[in-house]
């Protein structure tokens, strides 16, 4: 992917804003959700909404690390846009009768752990780390989850909302891969040494420990709903293909780490990786929610209401 002009991108972002009020959430079509679909879709939408929300917090951290004002403003918009996606997905859940009053769906324990980590440590992470992980999450979302949703749900309002969401996501990916390449500039040994230094940070190790079980749990949840595992893996491979198109992309050590990790995640035969991570997923089920600190207030910003 060629580097994009970030100044032009910022203008484009500002000109492409939309609001929940642009969509008629009471329009006909909600009845197209089948009874069989409903319970699985409810869980899927809750996971999707939380991933968007977690991604939003990631962009908030990136805005603090942006090397220039343009990228900082872009990330500030992306933070808000991911929140908008989460809000729109909640509005869809509300439309489909999946929300209980004003309650927001309960995040699973692995999401809770990632939320805790993001809240405490994400602002201290270097740009190249978060800036490389986020395109991977985005591409997995864009390429697999949203596609699966649109293939299986016939409600036109859902399609209308996801047309807008996907437009936003394509801009997020464009910027994401540009930043990934930007981080591949400089002397290779310096990039590698810096990445190794970051990898040894206890806070990042904690982050990895909360991120890996989340990936496997999401994979299990999605597969259980009928998404073909291969389409998730195909989306993850896209990250490797697009990120590795240019020399600078390939020189970014975080691209190398994340794409190699992606290969391991998609290789079910790699028992060395999956046995302990799947065990960690099971183990986290035993963490009593009461020992976790209260949900941070940024989570309470979520809303399905188009007006306030």
């Amino acid at each position: 992917m060629a580097m994009i002009d970030l100044d032009k991108m910022l203008v484009k972002i500002k000109n492409s804003q939309w609001a929940l009020a642009d969509i008629d959430w009471d329009a006909p079509g909600a009845e197209l959700i089948t009874e069989e679909q409903w319970p699985k879709l409810k869980e899927f939408m809750a996971d999707l909404m939380w991933i968007e929300h977690v991604g939003a917090r990631g962009f908030a951290a990136l805005a603090k690390k942006a090397p220039n004002d343009t990228l900082k403003e872009i990330y500030t918009y992306f933070h808000a846009e991911e929140q908008r996606h989460a809000n729109a997905e909640m509005a869809l859940m509300r439309r489909w009768g999946m929300l209980d009053g004003d309650e927001i769906p309960e995040p699973n324990i692995n999401l809770r752990l990632v939320i805790e980590w993001l809240d405490k440590y994400s602002d201290d992470m270097p740009l190249e780390t978060l800036g490389s992980v986020i395109p991977m999450l985005e591409i997995a979302l864009d390429g697999a989850l949203c596609k699966f949703l649109l293939d299986s749900v016939k409600d036109p309002v859902c399609h209308q909302a996801f047309d807008k969401i996907n437009d936003d996501e394509s801009r997020h990916l464009g910027v994401g891969f540009t930043v990934l390449e930007m981080q591949g500039h400089g002397k290779l040994y310096q990039l590698v040494l810096k990445a190794m230094g970051t990898l040894m940070r206890p806070t990042l190790i904690l982050g990895i420990l909360s991120y890996l079980p989340l990936l496997n749990r999401m994979r299990d949840n999605i597969v259980e709903m009928g998404l073909k595992e291969e389409s998730l893996y195909a989306a993850m491979k896209k990250f490797e293909t697009i990120g590795g198109r240019t020399e600078h992309g390939r020189r970014n050590p975080w691209y190398q780490i994340i794409s190699r990790h992606g290969r391991i995640v998609v290789d079910r035969r790699n028992r060395f990786y999956h046995v302990p991570v799947d065990a960690a997923v099971k183990l986290t089920n035993y963490i009593p929610p009461s020992i976790l600190p209260p949900i941070p207030t940024w989570v309470k910003e979520l809303t399905w209401k188009p007006t306030a």
Binding site: A19, K305, P306, T307
Partner: peptide, 21 residues
């Protein structure tokens, strides 16, 4: 702290998609 997307008839629309009236 969400960026302001636009002002509208009833108030302010911010980039997180909400219209504040």
């Amino acid at each position: 702290t969400w960026p302001i997307a636009t002002l509208c008839e009833n108030g302010i629309r911010t980039a997180e998609g909400i219209e504040h009236q």
